[in-house]
Nucleic acid binder design. Structure first.
Lengths: 265, 265
DNA sequence: CGCTGTGAATTCATTCACAGCG
DNA sequence: CGCTGTGAATGAATTCACAGCG
């Protein structure tokens, strides 16, 4: 990906930044809601609010797609829905397979937003022979043995892995060998794939851990705020509300013997 | 460096970059696996591979935490596990509530990796009176009416929203009012929260859409690479270069005004 | 030596601020 | 006027590359 250094002069002809791509679905969702309410046009300000971003960012994002707005007015909702859908490749239907029909896999299979927008669950696959034939979300589960056949018969290029961590890499390899080039991984493990295959991961415990980090920081600040007095500043120096570094940021270097007790017991 | 140049050598005492925070759980997972295999030390190179990042990035990340390695040797696995756990706030247990016990909520409740690392499901909450009392993953579901009491009785500061989109904002407000300051949102909607509250979102269809974008791009490149044959089908693959230079082509507008109606809601 | 830790360089993303079109 | 589209400025993240410690 992006390895090829095009000799294209400055102006990116089609290099939409990754960060922008990641926001297009958000815009699309907001626009779809407006469309359902028959709202004809939106300003960047309104749409940005609905999508939870700021308007400068939204306008910059749209500028990578082309000039789809009208100065003094805003954007035509229907038109933008179409343009973004097209950009995301949602004007076609993507058959998807879900591998691993446990609790999570079943929940994904039942997830409505799936079919509604450009994706179609082509098959559910599980390694447990007991599951074979049993319908989940109206679709009969098929055994892993059929994986390769299913992929090629249906021209599947997107696979969802919802197996236990231990099985994920192997499943991944089979999917890739069978022709899948995009994988959404729910298993808590790092997948290694050949070049040209995209992997995105969703991991509950990672998200929780990130939240815990911030939560802990908040607790620390709170405590520091209450007793705003000289304390072991190395321990849990409350970052200034803004971002800049707080005062007295002396050297670092974690003195190994010292394990600063951080938890506000 | 640009503006840098404060009086202080910018040794941030605690300003860990967000991107780094997001990777700490990955390192932790890889380290935990090593620890279970009783591996005593790892080099940045090995650990980086296991975590799926490159070693320079890993070393830079660790440098924000302190100097926990030994030159010429690597990192002590146990020690690093401890340091990262502490940094992430996992040396304490975080009670978590899950609101919305449908397919997904149930799957989350059953998710093992939950309890295993610093988190404890304090309660399951659902709006359906039918659900009340029924145990899911061994925990009895409680009715939404109890939400505030549950939060405060258990000192919950992290909430997981797995309700339908329509209910999410309201649930969010009640959680926040009751004292929750970190939210993991699985509902496909933008939550608005007051300052000081962190929200992270997990959205299946967004992830799929991002994959579809890249998938489409691959298909386009492939076609173009194959043999510049005039593809008869969709004339708008990933390559449709309608965007161009900002300078000369200043006044370009959408494609010949048309194409309104589109997606099936 | 080998491998960490880190300034400096580079690349990527966000924000500002305003020219200019409708 | 109001609002888009976008250069330029700023800021964040990644990568390079190497000094220096064990």
């Amino acid at each position: 990906m992006a390895t090829g250094r095009t000799h294209r002069p400055a102006t990116r002809s089609r290099g939409i930044p990754e960060a922008t791509v990641a926001r297009l679905p958000l815009y699309l969702r907001a626009l779809t809601a407006l469309s359902e309410r028959s709202v004809p046009t939106v300003s960047s300000e309104e749409l940005a609010t609905a999508a939870g971003v700021n308007s400068a960012k939204l306008r910059k994002d749209f500028s990578y797609l082309g000039s789809y707005g009208t100065r003094g007015v805003g954007y035509d909702v229907e038109y933008l829905v179409y343009q973004i859908s097209r950009e995301l490749g949602l004007t076609q239907d993507w058959p998807v397979v879900i591998v691993g029909i446990g609790n999570l896999g079943a929940a994904l299979a039942n997830y409505g937003g799936f079919a509604s927008r450009g994706f179609r669950v082509a098959a559910l696959i599980d390694a447990d022979p007991e599951m074979a034939g049993k319908p989940v979300a109206g679709i009969p589960v098929q055994h892993t043995d059929e994986l390769e056949k299913i992929i090629s018969d249906n021209g599947v290029s997107i696979g969802v892995i919802a197996t236990p961590a231990g099985a994920a890499q192997q499943v991944c390899e089979r999917l890739v060998a069978a022709g899948v080039t995009s994988i959404l991984n729910f298993a808590p493990t790092v997948l290694s794939v050949p070049d040209g295959v995209d992997v995105r991961k969703v991991d509950l415990s990672i998200e929780l851990q990130i939240l815990a980090f911030h939560e802990q920081r908040k607790a620390g600040e709170e405590a520091a705020a209450e007793a705003a007095l000289p304390a072991g500043e190395r321990a849990l120096p409350a970052d200034a509300p803004r971002d800049t570094a707080p005062p007295g940021a002396a050297g670092r270097k974690g003195p190994e013997g010292d394990v600063p007790a951080v938890m506000p017991a």
